[in-house]
Design a protein around this nucleic acid. Structure first.
Length: 638
DNA sequence: TTCATTATGACGGTTTTT
DNA sequence: AAAAACCGTCATAATGAA
């Protein structure tokens, strides 16, 4: 209960670990995950990535010092670290490949030629060399660990500045702050009574009455000019707050606001207190096992009923989906927008032979759910019986990992085969080989399809694992690459169907559905397989290839209802919604899984969170859902 | 040849789980 | 403390269509 551990990232490369006991949060350690080293004694290297107390000029300097360290005081440390890290990487690589049975000479040669960057390329080179020289593999000697002690990941730091900080101090700070606020606020109020408020003071009071910090309001007013409306000021403050809280991407204009508020009189300790509070409050915990309100094979012990906030209740029912493993705070935001309903986190490995950790927010009943029949294969062995013949005894997997949008290259599978063929005669390949192959198999979701042959799944196998009919995405002009992409972005049909199954008894005459970000129609397929009639489906999907897939599925399954499609959620406005609702008589269900690419762990380039370019379309899901609720007159909050 | 489409492979970090 | 997992993006090479 009490061992809450949190990690924060004060600046690039530097991390801090906190733990919570009772009501107190304790600092544990700073550590440096890779080659980044920040001198803890440099002011800019403090826990706060921005100095909140300094003037604009100063904070600008600090920001620069932190984000792009200058080779001044940190030079020697950085230099040492890079050298030892490089040595460590090199020895690790050598140990790895010698352990796989290659001669040290070949390994060194390959590393010299290739550099230390990509283990896969190195392996490729080694294989090439060894084919040329046909030298017998050298077995791993017991004590060939030249310099493992050079490989240091954690650095003890003297953190006198941090250590001395305690929560009591932070609370004092907060009290001071509150006193300042209320005193000034009171003064304004009394001025208001006597009717002697200037235009500027009126605006400040208005903001204070809305709960904004007066200091922030003052700065906003000062910086955006006296002509700025109260709404404009609020926007200014919000932008600055957002920037301050999550350091998210901001357009240039907004960065100005961020920069300016950074220079406010808010103290550093207050900032720490805020960070601590954020870490404690904004943390939705994932269930373990990830079974939400239950899966067919495993009902949760207690929780059989839930009560929903009044304003969230259907009709219309709604169902929202996204990846479970987002950056921190994302699900808190999503939940806050979707009427404070708690997300239901479910791993589709309970419905399929592959994992798929997803979060769902919906206002559906959770009693009397039932699964699709027939139950799909739940293990790799059941799903791919032919693979049993080739499955190595040392590959312990019985579930696949999450289906993604891209697959392994042919080169990789070739490397795996080549490495394994070198140990044909042995009972088992060396442990290092096993480790390498297993790592790749898990990373790329490979299955065994022949002697020493691991291969990525075929598109139709992915269709089966995700619960779609075979060839659902085949033909119609879609390329193989795009098939993988569309499938990788889709629902797991059995999982979604389990959640939607409660609608069957409620709507014996069928439903009208609004489907946002429809993709290849996972929700449509789920409802159809449940035997829930689809009267009218309005589907909004950007990709033409995907719309074509859903359209052709619709025609092939002899639907009697009508399918209407649009391509852009952002263009779906009130006029359009009203027109459709008046023609079909309202929606019973609004389904959507908004883009996850800026949230997903595989994204190295633009994992920007909910404010990312595509993932921010979540707000359109909310907008349209709320719009539908308004039009249908069930939004009691307004 | 030229242009358009498709396939390939290199690219780490955050968070959870064990 | 270490391992494992992750609905991805980009530049460029290869292939295909005219």
């Amino acid at each position: 209960m009490n061992d809450y551990v949190a990690e924060i990232r004060p600046c690039k490369g530097l991390r801090a670990l906190f733990t919570k006991f009772g009501d107190h949060v304790y600092f544990i350690a700073f550590y440096v995950p890779d080659v980044y080293v920040q001198d803890a004694n440099v002011p800019g290297g403090d826990i706060s990535d921005v100095d909140w107390t300094s003037s604009d000029e100063e904070s600008e300097t600090h920001l620069e010092a932190v984000t792009s360290p200058q080779p001044t005081r940190t030079e020697t440390i950085v230099g040492n670290e890079e050298a030892s890290s490089s040595n460590a990487t090199r020895s690790k690589l050598i140990v790895q490949f010698v352990g796989m049975g290659f001669s040290e000479k070949l390994v060194l040669k390959a590393i010299d030629e290739n550099g230390e960057g990509d283990p896969d390329s190195i392996l490729n080179l080694i294989l090439t060399f060894s084919t040329l020289e046909e030298s017998p593999p050298q077995q791993l000697s017991a004590n060939s660990d030249p310099c493992s002690s050079d490989y240091i990941e954690i650095f003890p730091y003297d953190l006198s500045d941090m250590d001395s900080w305690s929560e009591d101090e932070a609370e004092d700070c907060l009290k001071d702050n509150g006193a300042y606020k209320s005193e000034k606020h009171k003064m304004l109020l009394s001025l208001a009574e006597s009717g002697s408020l200037s235009e500027k003071e009126t605006k400040l009071l208005a903001l204070a009455n809305m709960g904004y910090a007066l200091e922030d309001a003052e700065i906003a007013l000062e910086r955006s000019g006296p002509e700025t409306s109260v709404d404009g000021l609020i926007e200014f403050i919000c932008v600055a707050q957002m920037a301050r809280e999550q350091d998210c991407y901001l357009p240039e204009d907004d960065l100005k606001a961020k920069h300016i508020l950074n220079g406010s009189s808010k103290s550093k300790k207050r900032k720490l207190f805020d960070m601590k509070k954020k870490v404690m409050e904004e943390s939705i915990r994932l269930p373990n096992p990830m079974i939400g309100y239950g899966v067919p094979s495993m009902q949760p012990p207690e929780r059989v009923h839930r009560s929903l906030p009044e304003e969230s209740r259907g009709p219309p029912y709604f169902y929202y989906e996204n990846v479970a493993l987002t950056p921190k705070g994302v699900w808190d935001t999503i939940s806050r927008f979707l009427y404070d309903i708690e997300p239901e986190f479910v791993d589709s490995k309970f419905f399929s032979a592959c994992a798929r950790k997803r979060g769902y927010i919906h206002n559906l009943p959770i009693e009397n759910r039932f699964p699709l029949i027939p139950l799909p294969p739940l293990t790799i062995q059941q799903a791919f019986p032919l693979s049993k013949r080739w499955w190595p005894t040392w590959d312990p997997r019985d579930k696949l990992n999450c289906i993604q949008t891209v697959i392994a290259s042919a080169k990789l599978t070739e490397r795996i085969r080549t490495v394994l063929e070198r140990h044909e005669g042995d009972d088992d390949p060396p442990e290092a080989v096993q480790r390498y192959v297993m790592e790749q198999c898990r990373k790329w979701n490979l299955v065994w399809v022949g002697r020493n042959k691991a291969a990525p799944l075929e598109p139709d196998e992915v269709e089966m694992l995700l619960g779609f009919p075979k060839n659902h995405t085949r033909g119609g002009g879609i390329s193989r690459t795009d098939r993988y992409k569309s499938l990788g972005n889709s629902f797991q049909v059995d999982t979604v169907a389990y959640h939607l199954s409660v609608l069957k008894d409620m709507y014996p005459h069928g439903i009208n559905m609004l489907s946002l970000f429809s993709g290849i129609g996972g929700a449509e397929v789920a409802l159809h397989r449940l035997g829930i009639k689809l009267n009218n489906v309005v589907s909004i999907e950007k990709s033409k290839a995907n719309r074509d897939i859903v359209r052709s599925w619709w025609e092939q399954t002899n639907q009697t209802g009508s399918l209407i499609d649009f391509d852009d959620v952002q263009l779906f406005d009130a006029a359009r919604a009203e027109q459709i609702i008046s023609s079909i008589g309202g929606f019973d269900l609004v389904v959507g899984g908004s883009p996850c690419n800026n949230l997903a762990g595989s994204n190295r380039v633009s994992r920007d969170g909910l404010e990312g370019k595509e993932s921010s379309l979540f707000y359109d899901y909310f907008r349209i859902l709320d719009l539908i609720k308004c039009i249908m007159g069930s939004n009691r909050a307004v």
